[in-house]
Design a binder for these strands. Structure first.
Lengths: 191, 191
DNA sequence: GCGGAATCTAGTCATTGACAAGTTCGCGGG
DNA sequence: CCCGCGAACTTGTCAATGACTAGATTCCGC
């Protein structure tokens, strides 16, 4: 598969995606170059365009894939705290996807495939807000949801930008986040 | 000042910075083009390079300026909650600065001017963590600081990426954030 | 008003994204 | 068997950009 020198690559789309995720993770989305990705895959400079149309198309595909993986990761979490932990775990496990997903100016937000995956993720995210301690109903519940989301998202974002390596040291980020939720959402009856 | 057609621009550095902030705010850092900024300022295509060396230099200058403004904004906040509110206010008031500051791969993190401003901001940020309700001392205090930072940062980030326009509607983000802190850090004696 | 330094201009080169046109390959119908 | 059709990939090209160099103009201290 890797040593074949055929005219057709075999799975160029995935190869380009994987290489792109690698570049984004280490150097950021700004360092993405379609021609560089083509070189890495051993194909001509215009080959990637056949699968992704253009640079924005590639980033759109990454965002869509990211939302899909995100929805899967959040799907079967037992409670809200665990959902938050998985939020953080996704960010550390798929940093490139995560980074692109939350920079809408990088991709085409009206892409249909992306919208579908995004909707799935949004539903998985909202599903666990009900069991919040401070949440009665209506406005307070929505606020509590925003609070939980902000906490998880902020932690994940600060983690990826390297801003927590100092205070956290070598501790497991997920465990630290679990402790965090214990500090804030102090609820004796949380299952 | 604006209609002068002299050889020297007068304040090209600021003009380029302002134009750059405008581009970043509306189209993201990826849309930055030194040549485009030069055109907007009415100078030759290589003029900006004299002030910022290269594209990364411009972004470094923006990050450094951002950290300076950030430190000023947080400086004289009465309590931790208000510091959080100002964190959010800074993000909405200086979205371009904020966006660049927290994407270290965009600039030179070892720049001396940037490091100085960043240190000032870090001190201003840490100064208000002491008065936390759940914070005893040592480990718990540090965790509580990370929690507060995560909450503010996550809220600000989600806000800038457009992810809160739905749940918030047309409500004032700062006020919503104030309510959030009331939901989480419920402390009767907080001034 | 002189000389050096800061500011800006003009020209060039390698790289990139985007597009157009042509080539090779896989595959199913006849 | 082979034929044709579409998908996958290549080659060639163009405008735009970042970065660099050399040179022109202006400012400012003395």
């Amino acid at each position: 598969m890797s040593s074949e020198r055929t005219y057709h690559h075999g799975d160029l789309r995935r190869a380009v995606l994987t290489a792109a995720l690698d570049v984004i993770r280490t150097e950021g989305p700004g360092a993405l170059s379609l021609r560089d990705l083509a070189r890495r895959a051993g194909v001509s400079h215009a080959a990637p365009a056949h699968h992704f149309k253009d640079r924005t198309g590639l980033l759109t595909a990454i965002a869509a894939e990211g939302y899909g993986l995100f929805a899967d990761a959040l799907a079967d979490a037992p409670d809200l705290r665990e959902r938050g932990v998985r939020y953080v775990r996704f960010a550390t496990g798929h940093p490139a996807h995560f980074q692109v997903m939350f920079q809408p100016e990088l991709y085409r937000a009206d892409d249909s495939e992306l919208l579908a995956a995004r909707a799935r993720a949004a539903q998985a995210l909202r599903a666990g807000v009900g069991g919040l301690p401070a949440a009665g109903r209506g406005d307070d519940a929505r606020l509590a949801g925003v609070a939980a989301w902000s906490l998880a998202h902020g932690f994940a974002t600060l983690l990826l930008s390297g801003n927590l390596s100092d205070p956290l040291g070598d501790r497991n980020p997920e465990e630290v986040f679990r402790s965090l939720t214990g500090l804030l959402f102090t609820t004796p009856e949380s299952s």
